[in-house]
Write a protein that binds this DNA or RNA. Sequence first.
DNA 1: TTGACATAATACCTTTTGGTATTATTTAAT
DNA 2: ATTAAATAATACCAAAAGGTATTATGTCAA
Lengths: 123, 123
Amino acid sequence: MNTYVTASADPQPVFRALADPTRRQILQHLQHEDMTIGEVTEHFDITRAAIKKHLNILEEGQLIYVEVRGRERINHFRGDGLETAAQWIDYFGNFWDERLMSLKDAIENDKQRKQNRNKRNNP
Amino acid sequence: MNTYVTASADPQPVFRALADPTRRQILQHLQHEDMTIGEVTEHFDITRAAIKKHLNILEEGQLIYVEVRGRERINHFRGDGLETAAQWIDYFGNFWDERLMSLKDAIENDKQRKQNRNKRNNP
DNA sequence: TTGACATAATACCTTTTGGTATTATTTAAT
DNA sequence: ATTAAATAATACCAAAAGGTATTATGTCAA
């Protein structure tokens, strides 16, 4: 069995899409209900055009699927799009344990130095 | 027992930090070894000042811990910082199943319409 | 066919972001 | 004390991002 982490897709489009709070909110709405651009816009205070740009970026990140239906475009939440980001994050979990001690030492070290500094300045 | 998802920390600083490819690379390096700003810089083709800015953003996202040691600043990878992002993503997993059918229908719908369109145009 | 509606596309503006260059501070070591 | 190393801080630049306004296009419905 292959224990190496399979090289997954480029995480850039997903992380870029998730970086904006408005886009994350849009996702939360679409998660509960499929919506046209107009319907999404109703939940925000910005123009339809701005929403459309966000939807484009969400689509590039494969976080939504856009169903073209007549003159409407129905935006569907796509949960599997988050897989790429989740995998990237999981990957780091593997190394966290081995670095934890180093971090604890570092914090202890900082504390020590701050105490010494105080002794020096307020003897 | 409380089955509601506890409101976790504001995910903005983390997602912002993860949105840049250079910062993700820096994390990968720090994951294996603690480094000063200068050491981190050696792995890239940009200036130390630019790296420092990235490190600031990583620190704001609590993805690194900066140990001030004399005239050096040692940057430590902080795995727990990814928790916030991971939790946010996990939250969506809960709703994925219930939306899956809607997505499948939408895709099927799109296929159908495309076929009809082709029949119409190339009879 | 003719409106009305939902969206697309373009141009434009402002702010943020990634980056450099330069100057100033702090600290270790002689 | 002096010098060199590591970093901080500031100003500055170019490109990208978020947003608006305007105009154009396709589609449903009477």
